[in-house]
Structure formats: C-alpha cells, structure tokens
C-alpha cells in the first residue's frame, strides 16, 4: 500500500484525537499544605544578634562545633549562609537608620530553612526523601536520599547544603525544625527556646499571623506592614516581621504563588491518565502501521522485475 503524506496525518491525527477524547482535562493543581502547621515568627526588631539561636541549634542537633565560639560576635562582620555544618546563622545589616547618637542601628536577620507550605525541594525530590509533615516541618529522610541534590536547585531560598567533604555518606543538611524534638518530645525548636528576648515566637501558624498583625497594628511606627512568609512562595512556616523594608536586610523577592504549582501542573497535566505517552506511542504505531508495507514493496519491486 502506498501511503500519502495526507494519509499518514489522517491516521496519526485520528489515533491522537481518539486518545485525547477519552481523557478528561487535567485536574486543577491542589496544594498539599497542612491545614494549621506549627511555625516560628521572627521579629527582627527584637533580635539583638547574640547568636544564642546558633548555639542552641548546634547543641540540640549535635552539629560540629564552630571554628569561632558563639560568643565571638566578630563573625557578624561578614554575611554568612547556612551550610552543611550549621543549620542557622545570624547576619547583621545596617539598613541606614541612625540612633540619637548618630550611630548606625544594626538589624540582625536569622537565616534558616523557611519550611514552605508547598516546598519546592520536596516537589523536586525524586525519591520522596523530603516531605512536608503535618506539624509544618519539611523533613529530610537520609535513608531515602540518593544525593541527586535537586532540592538544592529547587529551593528558592538556597537553603539545603550538601556534605561534599564526606565521600562515603554525604547528607543534605538543612534546618529540621527540630522535628523529633517538637513532634515526639513536645518541646520547642532549640533556637526558639534559647532566644533570650523571644525574637522567635513558636506556635501555630494561624496564631503567629494573628500575633504579627497585632504587633504591626499596635505599633505601626516600628514595623513595615508586611509579614514575610505569609504569601511568599505560597506561604512558609517561618514568618518574619521587620522594622525596615525586607529587601534592605537580605530578603529576596519570591513569587507569591507556590513554586511547585507551575511545574507540578505541567507534569500532572502531561501524565494524567497517561495520555501523553499513549498519544506518543499511538502516533508511533500509526507511523509503523502506515509504513508496514514499505519493505514488502521493495521486495515486490525487486521480485516483479528480476
């Protein structure tokens, strides 16, 4: 059989249309965020930069001791990031405000995993080593991790770190939200518990948002009217209040929709009811069917005219 170009598209189109018609349109993306997780509210106007949270974190999580002791505040002279040896760091910024003695007033910012409501790292993880727990923690299961480090690429806050220097059993390291401690022992995260000025308030996210709104309302001169983490990246379990605009103290602008939404909707719409593979293989089989006689024709032609 001789297949014209038009004939081929007819066959392939019919196959594709048939499969597409049999599937319904992909369901709308749904957030899998826990309803009322626990969280922490960091009030930057309260933080005094004492680094006790770093110390509490190191003690509670049995992390390696730092090179410089925790009461050495000269480490604040340069900006740091959480790494594979530290889950949380304090950075000092001078946003420009001066006190009555004409001294620049510092603002201290605690940096750690934000524990997103819809974490991009967990969405990117291909083995489910990272999961969002009911209590708000983005939990890392080292036994499942294969070390692909997609989470590090996916995280908008660039938090997960990797133990590159450990060649045998490297782990992804990031703030655990003291998962075991909070969930099983009923305690507070190490940093929140040790903070001498309650710059970190621990509680239910809904309560924290209420507290934050209340603080802004009762003291509007001291705060900017924004709770960082309320909408950022679709909402995070860690929330921040600041007295200075957030972009001046190292906070990045993150889209207000969950970062997982776009990627997951594309992926789920492509693979719902396996329609895309069915179409693909349908088309391929159409091609094969259309060309099924090509070889025969060659032999027939050869046979016909010896």
């Amino acid at each position: 059989m001789q297949l014209s170009r038009r004939g081929f598209f007819k066959v392939a189109g019919a196959a594709g249309a048939g499969v597409a018609a049999s599937t319904r349109p992909a369901e709308a993306w749904q957030s899998r965020a826990p309803a009322d997780p626990q969280g922490c509210l960091v009030d930057l106007t309260r933080c005094i930069g004492c680094r006790k949270c770093e110390q509490g974190c190191q003690t509670v999580n049995r992390l390696p001791a730092p090179e410089q002791p925790f009461d050495d505040l000269t480490v604040l002279d340069k900006k740091r990031r959480p790494d594979e040896r530290t889950y949380t760091v304090i950075n000092r910024y001078y946003p420009g405000r001066r006190d009555e003695r004409d001294q620049l007033v510092p603002t201290f910012v605690k940096v750690q995993c934000m524990h997103c409501q819809d974490p991009a790292c967990a969405s990117a993880c291909i083995v489910g080593a990272l999961t969002k727990k009911e209590n708000g923690a983005v939990h890392y299961d080292v036994t499942k991790c294969i070390g692909c480090r997609y989470c590090m690429v996916a995280c908008p806050f660039e938090i997960p770190a990797y133990e590159y220097r450990d060649p045998i059993t490297p782990r992804v390291m990031k703030c655990t939200f003291c998962y075991e401690r909070v969930e099983k022992e009923g305690k507070r995260p190490g940093c929140a518990e040790i903070c001498p000025v309650e710059a970190i308030t621990f509680g239910r996210r809904s309560t924290l948002l209420k507290i934050a709104r209340n603080r802004i309302k009762s003291n509007p001169a001291s705060y900017v009217d924004r709770v960082y983490g309320e909408h950022e990246a679709g909402g995070t379990s860690w929330l921040y209040l600041s007295g200075v605009p957030f972009d001046r103290v190292g906070f990045i602008d993150v889209p207000h929709r969950p970062l997982t939404q776009l990627a997951e909707s594309i992926q789920s719409s492509l693979f719902s009811y396996m329609w895309s593979p069915i179409v693909l293989f349908g088309m391929l089989s159409g091609v094969m069917w259309a060309f099924r006689n090509k070889g025969d024709r060659d032999t027939r032609e050869k046979g016909g005219q010896p």
Partner: peptide, 15 residues
C-alpha cells in the same frame, strides 16, 4: 513559660 497556647501574646519570663 514562653509560648503559652492560651496566652500567645504574653512574653515568657526570660524574654
């Protein structure tokens, strides 16, 4: 105590 669920706005003694 800090972070009492019945008194979320009340500071703990240390703070």
């Amino acid at each position: 105590e800090a972070f009492r669920s019945d008194q979320p706005e009340r500071l703990g003694l240390k703070a």
